[in-house]
Structures are given as structure tokens and as C-alpha cells.
Design a protein around this nucleic acid. Sequence first.
RNA 1: GGAACCGUGGUGUAGUCGGUUAACACGCCAGCCUGUCACGCUGGAGAUCGCGGGUUCGAGUCCCGUCGGUUCCGCCA
Length: 593
Amino acid sequence: MDELWRSDACGTLRLADAGREVRLAGWVGRRRDHGGLIFIDLRDRSGVVQIVFQPDDPELFAKAEALRGEYVISVKGKVTKRLEGMENPKLATGEIEVVAEDLVVLSEAKTPPFQIDRPGDVDERIRLRYRYLDLRRPALQRNMILRHRVMKAARDFFDENGFLELETPMLTRSTPEGARDYLVPSRVHPGKFYALPQSPQIFKQLFMVSGLERYYQIVRCFRDEDLRADRQPEFTQIDVEMSFVGRDDVMRMMERLIQRIFAVGGIDVNLPIRRISYKEAIERYGSDKPDLRFGLELVDVTDIVRDSGFKVFADAAKDGLVKAINAKGAARWSRREIDQLTEQAIEWGAKGLAWIAVGEGGSLRSAITKFMAEEEIAAVLERLAAEPDDLLLFVADRPDVVHTVLGRLRVVLGEKLGLIDPERYEFCWVIDWPLLEWDAEQGRYVAAHHPFTSPKPEHLELLETDPGAVEALAYDLVVNGVELGGGSIRIHRPDVQERMFKALGFTPEEAHEKFGFLIEALSYGAPPHGGIAFGLDRVIMVMARLDSIRDCIPFPKTQSAMDLMTGAPSDVAPEQLEELGIRLLPSARGGKS
RNA sequence: GGAACCGUGGUGUAGUCGGUUAACACGCCAGCCUGUCACGCUGGAGAUCGCGGGUUCGAGUCCCGUCGGUUCCGCCA
């Protein structure tokens, strides 16, 4: 055989190719051996084509009989229109088949631990251990191809709009605030550590100070926190920063990017994307990343129940809130189903879940109405636009508890009531975030976004007097209850940055030790700038409607952050630790491995 | 750190109230078959039921522990 392994990709052959001599290469999928006639589904990245072996060449036929699943072969043959009635409409190549004239086995294969060409669930342990085989399956290949095309679309967009793709260090310095860092010990400086970047935040700001004006990077980031279905310890960001821009400039540029990216998946994004304030998102949807595909909004009834005979309501109304969701059509749910909702509400921090079920003709089923006055009940029903068959669910508590619990309940109700259309994409920007949040545990304010986020100029003076009231020039992009990314206009004046660190409770010495280089950089003429970062993996997950981020990451880790294929993380040789000046605590020896 | 669910031939599952030979489908192996495409038919191999302990005359099944996987809470500027 010469150097030409293949003339065509399996999945690309069509009726128009009939009559052509082709050479194909790929993996043996299903084989259908009829004794006197053998069919092989030959698979490569492009798809599948049927190869036919006929018995007129006994030597060739014998070789075909020995083929097994996942053998890698090269086949020479003639593309042939299938016999009348033998077409397979399920295959893109179903109108033709390739009649084999020559066959070379390039690699034999052991029987794989799971069937490659059979869709369906396989234990994720097995899939991850044999990830290279899992990635051979068409479903995962589709996700990888989508991932590539999204990255390509993004790069094209950035290039067209004057952005430079610039790299930032992977070995950098650990900074306070934010997620737990992955640390890398330094051999040259025993006892000192690099940190892997949680994001290239400071570096991209420094690019702006450098006058590079528009930066982007598709870059790996690391956070040593516990995993979730949509969270991996290393993940990929589409990271962006722009000079001489305000909030609107960044948002407008980025929604064009999002439009371009989602177009890759055939999803239309109408511009401009609607904007909703953080406050409104919390009050109406109980979430800072609301799913706008359905209603079930939170309704405030605090004023109505202020003097309620139902003490739970009256007490909460004093210094908290009483809010409700009208689960339309849910009055028929069983007591057991409602009790399950109550259990969940309690798990999320509520003390309980009060409810009123509206029956035919307006009759009420409830454990709380007997404590409430007639007109109070009537006012609540009216406020919630209650109709027969509706189930009203109430939470009375501190505002944060009310919003968290009802916000989560809202999503559960939306799913249970079948209100969520998986094909719809409802985007929104969440804006006007608080700059700071009070952290009761630490007894200080912490940055809601990050310490470099610019306060709204009109709130600057509140930084010292009422820090909790300062709003930030920050924005998150949300789709269907998923946070795709977030960013902000940054602080570009060293004095403001110093005030921010002070508001965060840093002493001037601390601020200088940790971030002196940034403050110094800002003092050399920093342009106003701002940016954003999107979670690429989540973008793919949403576009491909995946349940897990792992299905769009080539080599993901398990929930316990292990790589089941390579066995990472692993022990290292004592000499390696010695070299780094590291000794393990007894509790760290012979632990999980 | 906490909660829940799961772990049975290679894969996916069943296995009742604890009962004697652990079932089914796919895959695998062999044979037959010239138009299949989830090919078909016949036969076969393949499991100490994640691991350890306990209760019991008897444990895949009940209990305790442990390991692993998943989902969620905390955490994730």
C-alpha cells in the first residue's frame, strides 16, 4: 500500500459518488455476516458507510470473515448505488454502499469494555477509565466537534473586531479572595508556591495598562473547590478585556459574540439581550440567574399579612418578608407531593412551607386559612390572581431565605408543571450588582464579583459610609437559569483601588504586599477598561443540551476530582518531595489514592 | 464537611417476604445462512452479586463499616 490511506471520508459519500473508486479507512462497527455475503459498517469521524464483501474473491472474503469490532482497516472499493429497495434512509450514506476490492487490517482490537456503536448509558467509571473509547462514540464526537466550531467562531469574531489573543502565565501567584487555589511548589525556592490561575484577571488588566487595547484568550482556569454536574476543577474560559469602554460597550460587543457562537448550534439569539437588575431578579425570581422560560414569579404579600392571625406570617412581616408563588394547576397535587415540596423547602433553609389549594368554585384547602381573616385571604388570593385549581405556596422568613427557597422552589415547580421548553433559549443580562457582600463568618465585606470591579461612579462616596449599598458596574450573562459568564468595568484609578481594598478590610500593608504591583501599574496611566469571561464548557453544555459538563470536556475528572484513566492525583516519589522541601503530615499519608 | 441514590457475567438490567441451579437483553466464541443495516437461526463460554464484618440453619437480599460513582447542600471573589 502506498501513502494514500484514504481518498474520502466514510460519511461523506453520496449517490453522486456512485461509480468512483475510493479508498476508505476507519473502524469496523457492526458486521453482518450472511455467510455468502458480508456487510461492514465502516466508521470514521465523518460518519458511517456500508461496505459489502462478495464471495467472488475467496481470499478477500476470508479476510473479511476474520474482521471483528473496532479493527482499524483500510478498504479499497467502488461506490455503488444500492439495489432498488435496499436503501437505508437512516444513514446519510444510505443510498450507496462500497463494494470492497481490497482490504488491509491496520490494527486488530480487543473487544471493547462497552459497545461503541450502541447509544445509551454506560457506568461513568467505565467511560472515564476508557475515555479514548468513550470519545470514539458518535455522541461525544459531536460534542467535541461542536466545541471546536464554537472556539473557531469565537476566534473569528474576535479577530474581526480587533482583539488580540494573548497568553498569560499558568504559574502565577496565589491571591486572597475567591476560590481555593491549586498550588504548585517551587523547587528553586523551597517552601514557596505558585498558584494556577483561577482566571487571568490581573494579567488581562495589565494588558490594558500596556496599551494592547483589546484582548481575548481561550484559557484554562483552575479552582480547587468541590465539583458539580456543571463544575470541573479545571475549566475553559473565553476571557475578554477592552480599553476605553463602558458597561454598554462591553455588553453590546459580547452579545454579538454570543449571537455568533450560538448560531453555530443553529440557535438564534435576538439582540439586544434584555437586561434585568440584580434586585429585580432576586425579587421576582428568587435567583441571580433566573430562568425566564416560564413565569411562576414570586409575589410579595407581606403588607397584606402584617396583622395576620397566622403568627408565622405576622412575625415574619415585622422584619422579614412573606412571599408566594402561584403554582397554576397544581391544586390537584396530593398531600404527599406537597409534603415533599415542604421537605425540600426546609432543606433549603425555610422553617416550613404554607400553602392554600384553590378548589372548584373557589373552595379552599389549607392548614393556615383558619387563622386568617376573610378579607386577608381574599386580598392574598387577589394579589396572586388565584383561580380554581391553583396551589399557592408561601415562605415567610428573612428576605434572603424567602428568595432562595422560593427561587429554588420555582424551578422545581416549573419542571414539575412541564413549563420548561428545552428548545427555548431565554437570555438576559443581570446588571446593577452590589459591589460588596457582608460575610458574617469573616465579619467583613467581601467582593461580590472581584476586588477590581468598579463601583458606579455615583456610589463612590458610599464606599466608606454605606459599603453594602454600593452598586457595581458588573454584569452577568444568564440563559435558562445558567450563568454563562460575568464581568465588569474595572477600577482604573489607583486611589479608588486603594479605597476598595480598604473597604474589604485589607490593611494598606496587606494590600501592598498582595496587590502592590497592580496599584503601581494603575499609577502609570491606565485607560478605563472592562471585560468579561464566559465559561466555554457551560456554553457548549447549554447549546448541546447536555446534563453534565463532563460530556463536552475531553478528559474530565470525577466528582472527587480524580482522573480515572491516568490515576491522577497520585503519590510521588519521596525524592520529589525532598527536592521541594515538602514533608507530608501523617494524616496525608496513605490516605485516599 | 453534610445528605440522598447507586454498585449483580464484558455492558445495561431483573432478582418478590432471606430459601436451595442468580434470570433477561446486548456483546463475546463456534456453526449455519447471498441483501442485511439493532440481520437471522442453533449452540457455547462467561458472576465467589464492589470490599470487610455481623445477624441467621441459610444473605445478592437484612444490619454496621468501608471504597467507588452520581446528584444536591455547604463551598465556587
